[in-house]
Design a protein around this nucleic acid. Structure first.
Lengths: 338, 338
DNA sequence: GTGAAAGCGCTAACAG
DNA sequence: CTGTTAGCGCTTTCAC
């Protein structure tokens, strides 16, 4: 690997002149500059990012932590973010926390040790210990999807109250009264908002809430499958189900199919977030969609801003809540008569 | 961020003693060592990986480049690899080349500038220029999925000839004679092997090969959708289709559905690689499965070996070809009578 | 316009 | 056993 020294030697100048010329950061005569550029090309010089990072204290790497990288919602988000970030000369280190707060902390420490420029964090932790730990790292952070109180960071998310509220409303209008909600990991802001949206909409419609119909699926396919099996084998089973994310909706659908129920004629199903190729899944799921590109765009815009602002001025935490949209598929219909 | 200096000051020793003690790399009295560890803890010392990297010339980062990070085959692979790599104290930088060789080169250069320890590469390039460029980077590389001649790297993949051959054989046994193959990006080893597997099996069964039934889907959902629309609107349409990957199989299925054909009674469909929610897709696709965990395991084992062997001894390029397995779903059946 | 030198945080000889 | 020192590759004053 050629270094700045090799270039200097070949061009017959000092290393500082090379740096000045190549970075356009000082007065170098056009002639010398040209000679240096030539030399750099012939020796195949590429600046060592590690040295630059050590010098500047900040690398060109951005960390991104999500709960499940194989969840299509997050892999789309990752893809969108990565695309935008490459334009700024940054690279993304994507990590899967498996929704485990301890693992998340471990990863955050590792990213901090790498002196990453910033972090896009779909957090799964909370509590004073957790927030104190994050604050101590002093990294530019943009929270995405899951909001956490007590961290000086921007937050970009969707109106989660609305996501489940609109699905619930849709089912109520179709005539359902016994509606179940398969929720995500309890304690998370996103989860609680979605549960709230469900509850409020039920109550506003004058429907009673059967607490046993609100079950915890932990945002996982398997859990949702199991919970829905349980729900549908009860004598007072629900006629409709709202799943709090995409993979749980698919788990629910599988349970419905495996038990031999017809969807939507016997059980209606609605979920949050799309899956790619949803077009080939029968029935086509009714879903509340988060605007992935808008989320990715805002997150990166703000993070980059924060990275460049660092040391210059402080930016007060911002918050942007995008609105979901409703896609009505063929998985929801009026409840069976009787 | 506390540095080794802060620890040294607090413990009342020199920085080299701190380094020696904390890395267990020199003779330090038990007492001093303990004092140093205490000091490190109280100031919250964590070694700066960037400085270590600059010193050693090699970071704890591993790059991974795939053609499409949102393809479930690759996101599973990424997840598996990441899990294994964390155990060795490494982090993964995952990047999406969008199957573009130029973009792939750009990314490889960026990784090289970061002095990554090694790269897991699902390559989409070939030709002397390409291989020369990669050789020049001198990074430990493990090729995965796509084999490229002319690079001194290990290769881990699946017997791709067999994947399409077993699917074709399965269709022939069901009675099909007009079988189409929606292939991946032409020129890639993987693609060519799969086409070969298709051809050889047809020929071995004494069936003629209609060249117009071998179409290029470029491993993309949209392309496959379009190609299959075209195939099925021909007067001499095929009765069965072998798609060279998972997303193309789903694109094909969508085309079949959209045209109003029944799968499998009117058109049979088989694909390569699973999708996570395959259980809820009707009909359940017949697929040739690659052993993702074995691929990930071998790739990382070899890459880590190569990373540690660097400078010590050279390892001759190795190759491991795993066998696929056949999953018979409900998307394949005997061709319609007449 | 250009060069010398300090220093980012760490490791590893080499002295003592 | 412990401390001094050089140096990884680069940027950035500060002299000349």
């Amino acid at each position: 690997m050629a270094t700045i020294r090799d270039v200097a030697r070949l061009a017959g100048v000092s290393i500082s002149t090379v740096s000045l010329a190549l970075n356009d950061t000082g007065p170098v005569s056009a002639e010398t500059s040209e000679r240096i550029r030539q030399a750099a090309k012939t020796v195949g010089y590429a600046p060592n990012q590690v040295a630059q990072t050590l010098k500047s204290g900040r690398s060109k790497l951005i960390g991104m932590i999500v709960g499940d990288i194989s969840n299509p919602f997050f892999s789309r988000l990752l893809r969108e973010i990565e695309r935008r970030v490459l334009d700024h000369g940054h690279l993304i280190i994507a990590l899967d926390s498996a929704t485990d707060p301890d693992r998340e902390r471990f990863i955050l420490d590792a990213l901090s040790a790498q002196r990453v420029a910033g972090v896009v964090l779909a957090s799964h932790g909370n509590g004073p210990d957790y927030t104190a730990h994050i604050r101590r790292l002093k990294m530019p952070i943009v929270l995405i999807d899951h909001k956490v109180e007590g961290i000086e960071a921007d937050f970009v998310g969707t109106d989660n109250f609305l996501t489940s509220a609109m699905l619930t409303e849709h089912l109520i209008r179709l005539g359902h009264t016994r509606i179940a909600h398969v929720s995500g990991k309890l304690g998370l802001w996103t989860t609680m908002q979605r549960i709230q949206g469900f509850r409020s909409t039920m109550t506003a419609a004058g429907l009673p809430i059967d607490e046993s119909l609100i079950v915890d699926g932990d945002y996982l396919h398997e859990n949702a499958y199991g919970e829905v099996l349980r729900l549908l084998t009860r004598h007072d089973r629900p006629t409709a189900i709202v799943a709090a994310n995409n993979v749980m909706a698919l788990g629910a659908l599988q349970a419905i199919n495996d038990l031999g129920f017809k969807c939507p004629s016997e059980v209606s199903l609605a979920g949050i977030d799309d899956v790619p190729w949803s077009a080939v899944i029968q029935p086509r799921l009714t879903t509340a969609l988060q605007p992935v590109e808008s989320l990715a765009g805002t997150a990166i815009e703000w993070l980059i801003e924060r990275i460049y602002a660092r040391g210059t001025h402080i930016i007060a935490p911002r918050e942007r809540i995008w609105l979901p949209s409703l896609f009505v598929g063929s998985s929801t219909a009026a409840p069976p008569a009787g």
